[in-house]
Design a protein around this nucleic acid. Structure first.
Lengths: 172, 172
DNA sequence: CGCATTCACTTAACATGTTAAGTATCTCCC
DNA sequence: GGGAGATACTTAACATGTTAAGTGAATGCG
């Protein structure tokens, strides 16, 4: 039933394979993608029942902990790009889940906060969400989970500087 | 400079917070998302220079190892949903990077394979890609990397069964 | 055989990811 | 104080993610 990708007898291989790439399915990006999908698959149905997407939920959660934030900082917190956040805030504002007012001191900035309705919605979603998280923790093991998170953080750290040194290859 | 999310003195908190959610930024989905983004940020520029997106590259890599596959199996391998794959294949075919022909035995199925041009393109991208992967491995440590991948796989396993048992809450 | 089901995709519709441009506001420095 | 440059978003354009519906081809079963 399992169709293996013809790994043996590749003898008459198509010449150009000088650099035999790692088995694709075991690359780090794929591992991370699959793991994340496995996790999110658990949450999506519940969020969907409440009319929220994953990203909208991220924004509400980020807002719940504070009084108000600038859009840019919210983008950093919720790990969304500016354009995505712009669109989502427009929609969340239309649904009265968040509020927005331009900062007095700087007309460019706008301060975003969660509305009462937003808080209410969160309260209705949070229990299920926490239950799912608890079940995941139970299945995988709290200690292993903490370990995993630590490694993920370390990985981020390892690559943080790498991304910043983008000179020397001036493309334009 | 660091604007902490007002965690103390939440005394006059907005009532509805019966379920105090974990610190948002430390949730598993966020950790996975950030880690993956940190990794992909390294690859994207190189792929872009070759006119490929991350997903297109995934498809080519998946195809490189085999003679031909059905679309459905390719979707599983490259971890893409059917609709995404449909669109991307249409484009890759237009660019002559992949080829497609309907299976003789079953007119519904179409077999996809990488073209000569596709192989050539891969050969031109692979070296850089492997170099980046090597650098990531060097920075993070080969052993830690293997450990991380193992944990990610275990996490997937833990949640695999959970997702399958979707009865008992018949929504429709 | 005939027809309802299932299967393997493809289209459609809407939301987000990603990069580049655009717009309004602010800052700084001459 | 005025204009160049930096900032904080927002729009635009294209690609993908996600779910639902559509289409044509096989299958199963009476």
């Amino acid at each position: 039933m399992v169709k293996r990708p013809a790994d043996p007898a590749n003898g008459s291989a198509p010449a150009a394979r000088q650099v035999p790439m790692r088995d694709f399915s075991r690359s780090l990006p794929m591992s991370l993608l699959r793991a994340r999908e496995a996790v999110m698959r658990q949450f999506r149905p519940s969020l969907r029942e409440h009319g929220l997407t994953e990203q909208q939920w991220r924004i509400l959660r980020a807002l719940a902990a504070i009084e108000a934030v600038e859009v840019t900082e919210l983008a950093r917190t919720a790990f969304l790009l500016g354009p995505s956040l712009s669109r989502i805030l427009r929609d969340l504002e239309a649904r009265n889940l968040v509020e927005r007012k331009t900062a007095k001191a700087d007309q460019r900035r706008s301060m975003v906060s969660i509305s009462k309705e937003g808080v209410k919605l969160m309260a209705s979603v949070a229990p299920t969400s926490e239950a799912i998280y608890a079940e995941i923790t139970r299945r995988f093991g709290a200690r292993k989970l903490a370990e995993l998170q630590e490694m993920l953080g370390a990985l981020e750290q390892s690559l943080a500087e790498l991304g910043a040194s983008e000179e020397a290859s001036a493309e334009e």
